[in-house]
Design a protein around this nucleic acid. Sequence first.
DNA 1: GTGAAAGCGCTAACAG
DNA 2: CTGTTAGCGCTTTCAC
Lengths: 339, 339
Amino acid sequence: MEDIARQAGVSRSTVSRVINNHPHVSDDVRKRVLETIQSTSFYPNLTARALASQRSSMLGLLLPRNVSSFFADPFFPRLTQGIAQACNQFNNTLGLFLITSAEDEEKIFPRVSRKGMLDGILVQSGQYGDQLIERLMGSEMPLVVIGRPFYKEDVSYIDVDNVNAAYTAVSHLIRLGRRRIATIAGAANSSVSIDRLEGYRLALNEKSLPVDPSLMVEGDFTEVSGYYAMRNLMPAKPDAVFVAADLMAIGAMRAAHEAGLSIPDDIAFIGFDDLPLAAYSTPPLTTVRQPIYQLGFNAVEILLEQIKNGILPARRVILNTELIIRSSCGTTHRKGLNI
Amino acid sequence: MEDIARQAGVSRSTVSRVINNHPHVSDDVRKRVLETIQSTSFYPNLTARALASQRSSMLGLLLPRNVSSFFADPFFPRLTQGIAQACNQFNNTLGLFLITSAEDEEKIFPRVSRKGMLDGILVQSGQYGDQLIERLMGSEMPLVVIGRPFYKEDVSYIDVDNVNAAYTAVSHLIRLGRRRIATIAGAANSSVSIDRLEGYRLALNEKSLPVDPSLMVEGDFTEVSGYYAMRNLMPAKPDAVFVAADLMAIGAMRAAHEAGLSIPDDIAFIGFDDLPLAAYSTPPLTTVRQPIYQLGFNAVEILLEQIKNGILPARRVILNTELIIRSSCGTTHRKGLNI
DNA sequence: GTGAAAGCGCTAACAG
DNA sequence: CTGTTAGCGCTTTCAC
């Protein structure tokens, strides 16, 4: 920078102003500086800039997950993409922190919670009992939670409307004439699972259908868990299943096929996510599309805005979902009523 | 740091020495400093340290991928995990850079290729024609490529032995009596696909079996592409298929089932990856297990070593794979020879 | 509109 | 073994 200041015949301050697009620089000087920057292929040292300006232009993404679920569920890669693209678009760098153990957390926490390395934090909503988010709130770092946190006083977060999504899906099954509607939920300690289960209950209650525990089983978002969950469900003879993830739905349909059930005649399925897979399963899966990429992208936007304007007031953003109707849920049930 | 130096009654240099575990500090002074650090819950500003020491302790992971493949293939999350855990273990921070367009690359390249923000770079081997790795080699940054690069002069890289893995898998099918062995390869412009295809050819050649183009089709690593690839393969009536990815193998088996073929009696399958899914497919999938997590973890180790000791000589590390035999490939073919 | 000067918070010779 | 003194490469008042 010294060099390019000399070459352009100005001071370092002026070069700095040009680089940072400050006003109050005469056009010709700006042009001259820009040219020498071009010719020198100079690029500012980001560390030095961060130290001087107290802004690193780096955002941290914390993923407090057990090892398996991180790579079982396509949700994370997709979310990460949205975040990464947003970071790039707004000229920020993304730091990735996978927290898979308590030791990880102890190592990572001080690194991310003090001013210095990061301007702000995105954290995936953890499991019930997880204290990470509260600890993070205790620090002065701007924070946006992805997914509804359990203790949500004064945190900004972004989530999809899981309750309503599940409600809509199950209501659809009811409308088609299904009456023994089961659900394969996700892990009970995540807010996602809780909310989807809540939507399931709401829809049943609304139509005065019983909420039967023998029709409710739990998986862990993997294909395999869906397969076994479905086998456990068999004795209860459901005529439809609302599954909290496409991957589990695929596994569940595999179990149904093996048992000789015909889909959707004997049993209907609705998944959640709308993975690319869903359109090509046998039969194609009716599912709830959630804007995962948008979730990540918007989270970055919110975080950046809070970094700029202060962390209060906490913002809450809920994105809508969409029911994508394919053939796994059938049309009106064969025994069914007209709509 | 100023404060804690004063509180401990020493100079800042001494505090620095203690923090960085330098020798030549008396035990009692060290202890005193450590105590005040504890009580103050002081944590050094990493940006300042990076600027002063010219080492950021931050590694960059560059993923030059088209959008879809990044989240279709569980390979990436798993790899990322290995890398993230290694970074954490060695007290480094991981920066994630997804490159999904030429503009992305132009924005990201200067950020990562100059000293300042990163100490070193991990880059996923790109596609044929991709110039990113060469550009990166032109910079002075330590670099480790994950996967065999196309132009491999003087780059350090780490890869699994894809040629040998495919050779072993196909040889196994031959040994079981299969004679019309097809393959569903990955995208032709990736080194992974090329190497696996090479191993396929080697095995056939060794036993003087013809390499029949009608038995060779291409997918893109997704389940769906495997499904359609298998349908394209049907007319050629293969009695076995070596599939370059488990996900595609699952899709291919789905197509085979739909066509009324029995696995492994009519047709055998071998996949690649050994995803958790593979053990639970119908039938359980014989597949090549590759140490993806290790790949990532070791890549970090190599990079860190090069950062410490200089980037020359380039290191090449090839990890071994393992054929996991399940029932999708059958035992000796029903028409078969004894082994 | 531009330059001079003072840091940002830490590390690293260099003395002692 | 410890303190003093310069910086690392940039941003940012504050004068002019």
